[in-house]
């Protein structure tokens, strides 16, 4: 008996996940722009709403800090993004007013215009921004499968996809991806006290995500940091 290598072990796990998913659609089909909103009574957010194709702007940074941050009112980055020598691994924030949205800052060298125009196009009151930053291995990227919410809770579901073979990256390094997601609902920051996020290794979105999100949906506006000149795409 030979123990499976890590690769084979992972493959087995992936195979099981794919088998469970029963979803033949692969990611990479980024042409759809349709929006699907569904009322769900089950899953992790009973009575919540799920959107599998939310309007999103996502920025990828480097190993040092979060590409998008929510500063405190004086304009300095929030404590959650600069704790200790290294930034917090993950962070999230509900942005429910235009004044709070003005506190969004981006890391040096990151596409500030994408964030600025996304913020401007948001109708606060009937829409809410959700900022989430997550670490990801440098040779992978995250794809947002969907977001679920209730007046008091927000859940996101991601899949992790490998970057193309010619993207120069180290297997031992993590980078940060920040996303602003536009929730088509007027959430109030003070009411939201429950957050959750899942990341699947299977590489494709499906209807079985822990956040209860449905079929695959594209990131509507994936903006890659200019500092990250590595080719994104097809792996």
């Amino acid at each position: 008996m030979t123990p499976p290598t890590r690769r084979r072990l992972l493959r087995t796990v992936a195979a099981a996940a794919v088998g469970t998913a029963g979803c033949g659609r692969l990611l990479g089909d980024e042409s759809s722009s349709s929006r699907s909103v569904s009322e769900r009574s089950g899953g992790t957010l009973p009575g919540g709403t799920t959107e599998t194709d939310p309007d999103t702007v996502s920025l990828r940074g480097d190993t040092d800090g979060h590409p998008i941050r929510l500063g405190d009112p004086s304009g300095t980055p929030a404590a959650s993004a600069r704790r200790g020598r290294h930034p917090t691994r993950s962070s999230h924030a509900v942005i429910d007013t235009r004044s709070r949205a003005r506190r969004l800052t981006v890391a040096d060298g990151v596409d500030a215009d994408a964030v600025s125009s996304f913020r401007s196009a948001t109708a606060f009151g009937s829409e809410t921004l959700y900022l989430e930053t997550k670490p990801v291995e440098a040779c992978f990227r995250l794809r947002l499968c969907g977001i679920s919410w209730t007046p008091t809770a927000v859940r996101t579901a991601y899949v992790r996809q490998r970057r193309p073979y010619d993207a120069r990256c180290s297997a031992d390094e993590d980078v940060f991806e920040s996303r602003l997601v536009r929730i088509p609902d007027g959430l109030r920051r003070d009411d939201v006290d429950s957050y959750g996020s899942s990341t699947s290794e299977r590489g494709r979105c499906d209807g079985d995500g822990p956040a209860g999100v449905g079929r695959p949906g594209p990131d509507a506006a994936t903006g890659i940091s200019p500092t990250d000149a590595r080719r994104e795409g097809t792996e």
């Binding site: 073979y165 120069r168 990256c169």
Partner: peptide, 27 residues
């Protein structure tokens, strides 16, 4: 090395497969 396959994760996968092949030869 990186000049052959720049993506370190994919390079690792291929190297791991070749090591697994060698392990199975030993087995």
């Amino acid at each position: 090395g990186p000049s052959d396959v720049p993506n370190g994760s994919i390079r690792h996968e291929l190297l791991e497969a070749s090591e697994a092949a060698t392990d199975h030869l030993d087995d």
